[in-house]
Design a protein around this nucleic acid. Structure first.
Length: 830
RNA sequence: GGGCGAGUGGUGGAAUGGCAGACACGUGGGACUUAAAAUCCCAUGGAUGAAUAAUCCGUGUGGGUUCGACUCCCACCUCGCCCACCA
């Protein structure tokens, strides 16, 4: 008997076998029900650490489990291969992004293999390959045709020293992460996708996502940020101009004592022409410009503003109120100008206090009556209207509607719905991305590349040193082209697409990998989607998932797909923490799986990773605890030898047979439930551990009995080898290599993954005895054993007749007896 | 400031409103061994106690609902994550 299982030999052998037999490849011809198990495809940055591993190990366990449950499983994998890090590395080291990316892919692929994580590699997609980004460009053209792609000016983070555009994550405390120069805002004409057209649909359909975690749905809803209110028009005094503001509190309109607009508001041009206070305004604007939008949004910035010198007229009471410009108003939400009601909005209140602006109470608290001059903070709750003309003493929630429709009638304003969701800026002034398929012609203007001319290929030979423009801009051979319309000289768009565009549709491409005619086959995607189980990190809860939902809805509207939502079920696994921080290379706390696999084998790493805690929660990695998983697998391995070769597999003792049968079936039931219900592999493993422990106990005890008596006479017998097979099947999705090996050693010709998942036997569960807890007034006082299936009445009777229980009750009066079937009896006495 | 989570032994964690601490890690003790590793066995929330007797306390804090609360309700405290001056 071998003491330690030889993981080195076993793992390589079975990985090779699974690869050769294409175990996890989807079968197009199969009649079995489909199961699309999708893991978020990774960015090929560098070597994977055990934190990444959690995602793939969970996914692999699910895929293998579903296969054994009789599904035709599709488990593909690919690479989100465009992006900034590879380009930054190129700037630093001179290695071409293509080279470093494909090196990383090779490395990561072999790591996945070593983990025993199986995919249908025949369907691999790589987003930086021309045969993939051709169709990302095709998607752009489709959005362009539908009027969902448009160009407008937008600010970017600009580092004046590096002369380059920075992503938000490259800006640290308002400074460039590389050279620490202060980041500026620079305006560029950029491409957007009109996701705001789908804001309401994206919000409405959240409720159809039954298999998504509630918190992700809430995050999406908050991100879309619908609010109902009204647009209200204020005439500017002395000018033939109107300023419109958005408010969610039209009930407070009579309390508007000033108006305030964002420093970026275009009306400021007018202000500068006519204002008597224009010097102050200019001074203020200069000061605000010094604060980047990054600074303005970080932390609590002191509210600052300036009087514009102009007044506007409150339409409901013709009151003349001052117009201010302040840093706390965001241009880009609502209309960029706000009616300020200091009595009922905390921000307005603080601002009014600072600049001595009027505070007028218009909503009185129903509890105690308020006084505007004495208030210490704004009253933002509901209440009853005061100082509000004909709406006096109306409840504020009712007044919201009443005032809005009254204003609508009088042409002062109208009902309005706004969203926080902004259009999706997809232009990147970068090289390593899919080129935007657009051509600029002096005669014809903006002309999309013809579909037949796709892909617009990225040139290989590129200078990476930052020059202030997209590296493609300097590449004459790329930029200079001819107009698809008139054939004249024209220029290509030099920007590339946000990598979120690449990842917004990759799950469709898996159904038609390598197809040169179409992006994806409608029949195939309609059969296989929505994805049955999507697994990934919660960090993608908003952007990636929202963009994918948006693109799916657009594709549905152009009849390219027949479903409205891409992912039916979503599982977001928790992060792996080490030394109190998320595992990451920059923090230097990564645990390298290669060494662990070398020492203990992939199955040990898998079992420990799954055992560490509930998969949706963050978990602290503990190197020492890995040993526990290793010991467990060796225990199973030794148990196999004990049963198959020790000659002690036949259980003849009646009690032992019953206890083993009951335990086995209980564990099958629990393991199946925990996987189906919640992917709680941590309790799955602990249950299997219990089964292994009790099987060993039973086998040992039987051996003892056999030693006592020379001849064992028994009516019935049970082969412990059957339980061992069950253990092997239950454990195989989690620790596939060792189970495959044991399965074959037990005499099976075919892979364990071609066998069916065990079903539990209801009859077996009702065998034997059950311990009943006896409580008196809710406190545990005794335990008694009964045969399973005893009636509540009978059990109650026996308990009350029990000597110990009688003594405990003594002279007290029994008021009530509560019986919980198969569990407990509570005797309430006084 | 808003939203979402989470608080249980020395540690990770377990518990459809029904035995709190399963299963592991760690620690202590023992067996085997010349010794070690490996393996196996025992103990392991706290207090009183000679005790494997018995009793009491114990799931962040304070209330409540209930025969019975880690679990449900209310208020609060602490920590984590995401968003953040959204009118």
């Amino acid at each position: 008997m071998e003491n330690k299982y030889p993981h080195h030999e076993i793992e390589k052998k079975w990985q090779q076998y699974w690869r050769d037999t294409k175990l996890m490849n989807m079968d197009e011809a199969s009649q079995k029900p489909k199961y699309y198990c999708l893991m978020m495809f990774p960015y090929p940055s560098a070597a994977l650490h055990v934190g990444h591993g959690r995602n793939y190990i969970i996914g692999d366990a699910v895929a293998r489990y579903m296969k054994m449950k009789g599904y035709n499983v599709l488990a593909p994998m690919g690479w989100d291969a465009f992006g900034l890090p590879a380009e930054n590395a190129a700037i630093k080291s001179g290695i071409h992004p293509r080279e470093s990316t494909f090196n990383n892919i090779t490395k990561m692929k072999s790591q996945l293999e070593e983990w025993g994580v199986l995919y249908d590699w025949d369907r691999e997609v790589t987003s930086c390959a021309p045969d993939y980004y051709k169709w990302t460009q095709w998607l752009f053209l489709k959005l362009y045709e539908k009027g969902l792609a448009y160009k407008k000016e937008a600010a970017v983070n600009w580092c004046p020293d590096c002369r380059t555009v920075l992503a938000n994550e490259q800006v640290v405390n308002g400074a460039c992460e590389r050279c620490s120069a202060e980041v500026q805002q620079k305006k560029l004409k950029q491409w957007f996708f009109k996701i705001t057209d789908y804001a309401q649909k994206l919000l409405d359909d959240i409720q159809s996502l039954k298999g998504w975690p509630q918190r992700v749905k809430t995050m999406q809803a908050n991100w879309i940020g619908r609010s109902e209110g009204a647009y209200i028009d204020f005439k500017v005094e002395g000018l033939d101009k109107t300023l419109t503001c958005f408010t969610t509190r039209p009930d407070t309109i009579f309390g508007a004592t000033y108006m305030v607009m964002a420093p970026e508001h275009p009306f400021i041009e007018d202000v500068l022409q006519v204002s008597e206070n224009k010097d102050e305004v200019i001074k203020f604007l200069a000061k605000i410009k010094g604060q980047s939008s990054f600074q303005r949004q970080a932390e609590q910035v002191e509210k600052e503003g300036v009087f514009s010198g102009l007044y506007v007229i409150n339409p409901v009471n013709q009151e003349k109120i001052p117009l201010w410009i302040a840093n706390y108003v965001i241009y880009g939400y609502g209309t960029g100008s706000v009616m300020a009601v200091p009595a009922h909005d905390q921000r307005d209140f603080e601002f009014a206090k600072k600049y001595n602006l009027n505070i007028r109470l218009v909503i009185d608290s129903p509890k105690d009556s308020l006084d505007g001059s004495l208030m210490k903070s704004a009253y933002e709750d509901v209440g009853v209207l005061v100082n509000s003309g004909k709406f006096e003493s109306m409840p504020s929630d009712k007044a919201k509607k009443a005032i809005t429709s009254w204003m609508q009638d009088k042409n002062m304003g109208k009902k309005a719905i706004t969203y926080k969701l902004r259009d999706w800026l997809i232009s990147r002034q970068r090289y390593w991305g899919a080129p935007i398929p657009i051509i600029y012609c002096d005669k014809c203007g903006i002309v999309p590349v013809k579909e037949k001319d796709l892909p617009v290929e990225l040139p290989d030979d590129i200078e990476f040193k930052p020059t202030g423009v997209s590296p493609l801009e300097d590449k004459k051979e790329f930029i200079e082209t001819t107009c698809p319309k008139c054939g004249g000289a024209a220029k290509r768009e030099a920007d590339t697409m946000d990598t979120f565009v690449d990842s917004s549709w990759y799950y469709l491409r898996y159904l038609s990998p390598g197809n040169e005619k179409i992006a994806f086959d409608k029949k195939a995607v309609d059969k296989w989607l929505p994805v049955d189980q999507y697994i990934g990190g919660v960090e993608h809860a908003i952007l990636h998932l929202l963009y994918s939902r948006f693109i799916t809805k657009v594709l549905f509207d152009i009849k390219a797909v027949g479903f409205k939502e891409p992912f039916a079920n979503l599982f977001t696994q928790g992060m792996i923490i080490k030394d109190g921080a998320k595992m990451s290379k920059s923090k230097g706390n990564v645990v390298n799986p290669d060494e662990l696999i070398k020492k203990y084998g992939a199955d040990t790493v898998r079992v420990y990773t799954l055992f560490i805690g509930p998969p949706e929660k963050d978990a602290e990695w503990n190197d020492r605890a890995v040993e526990g998983a290793w010991r467990f697998l060796n225990k199973v391995w030794r148990l196999m030898y004990q049963i198959t070769q020790g000659g002690s597999s036949l259980i003849t003792d009646e009690t032992l047979i019953t206890s083993l049968l009951v335990k086995t079936n209980e564990v099958i039931k629990k393991v199946t439930f925990d996987i189906e219900n919640s992917f709680h592999f941590n309790t799955v493993i602990s249950s299997i551990m219990e089964l292994v422990n009790s099987t060993k106990e039973v086998v040992d005890k039987q051996a003892e009995l056999n030693n006592l008596k020379d001849e064992v006479k028994s009516e019935s017998s049970f082969d412990a080898g059957k339980t061992l097979q069950t253990i092997c099947l239950l454990l195989s999705p989690l620790a596939p290599h060792i189970c495959e090996e044991m399965w074959r050693k037990m005499g099976h010709e075919e892979s364990v993954f071609l066998y069916s998942w065990p079903e539990y036997d209801k009859k077996a569960l009702s065998l034997g005895q059950v311990e009943i807890i006896v409580q008196i007034n809710g406190k545990v006082r005794s335990r008694l054993n009964f045969n399973k299936g005893i009636s509540d009445e009978q059990m109650k009777k026996s308990v009350l007749e029990d000597e110990k229980v009688k003594n405990l009750i003594a002279n007290s009066i029994i008021k009530k007896v509560i019986v919980v079937a198969g569990k407990l009896i509570n005797i309430v006495v006084s």
